[in-house]
Amino acid sequence: MPANLLELEQISYRYNAHSQLVLDDVTLKITEGSVTAVLGPNGAGKSTLLDLCLGWKEAETGRILLRGREISSYSRKEMGQLMSLVPQNERVRFDYSVLEYLLLGRAPYLSQLEMPKAEDLGIAERALATVGIPELRHRSASRLSGGEHQLLMIARALVQEPEILILDEPTSQLDPGNRQRVVRLLRELHAQGVTIIFSTHDPGLAAALASHAVLLKKGKILQAGVEESVLKDSCLSTLYDTEMRVLRQEGKTIVYCAE
């Protein structure tokens, strides 16, 4: 039985004292080496859930434990070494080369006044090879295609050598070919033992990748557990308020809207 890596205990969150709860009494366990998909309609609290795991937002009530310790007790550097984020999109403001951009991922391993060294460059080069775009190393990071940029952001997250990789809608802006590249890559990372948490609007992606799924609706957990027990007609239909069907054939899962 794999150990619990991340535990959310009765988490509630709201933006400010006057707003409604964005997350309401959420309890969740993420086991080591699992791939967890967070699904839910717009505004269900998916991104907030990821931000809480990352420590970027603080819960109003409840606590979040990472390896049994409250995440607020970890230093910023420790958190940067344990978890990395692939944001949904990101603007590169200045004209960095791909390698310069990737080296930013070494920040959690360097002290304030330290510069990246040859060893850090090696890690960046390996991450670029892992995501399959080593030929872009000297290109400008702000002039990549959408698919290349997504792979680059994943590569930077890998440069952090994290135990937990958090991805915010990793394939929402990709064409089918690039989407498949990202799926293959995340499967490889899973095989290497990286724990992955991602949010998505695409139940098909969840079925293709995830070992576990969490269904969030209006800030509450509707259903959570191993993927097959959660991605079912009934659960998904309730989640999205529309007739959903899940077809499983020859190891493939197809999710479609039946209306």
């Binding site: 931000d51 990352l54 420590g55 970027w56 910023r76 550097k77 420790e78 958190m79 940067g80 070494q81 978890m83 990395s84 984020l85 944001p87 990101e90 603007r91 403001r93 200045f94 960095y96 310069e100 930013l104 991922g105 920040a107 959690p108 304030q112 006044l113 330290e114 510069m115 990246p116 952090q160 958090i166």
Partner: peptide, 27 residues
């Protein structure tokens, strides 16, 4: 001059800089 590399990190979005292990506001 000492912070010359870290300035790159501080030019990132708040959330990205935070996820890279920085305390962006303080720095």
């Amino acid at each position: 001059f000492g912070y010359r590399w870290r300035l790159n990190l501080l030019s990132m979005d708040d959330r990205t800089a935070f996820s890279l292990g920085l305390a962006p506001f303080r720095e």
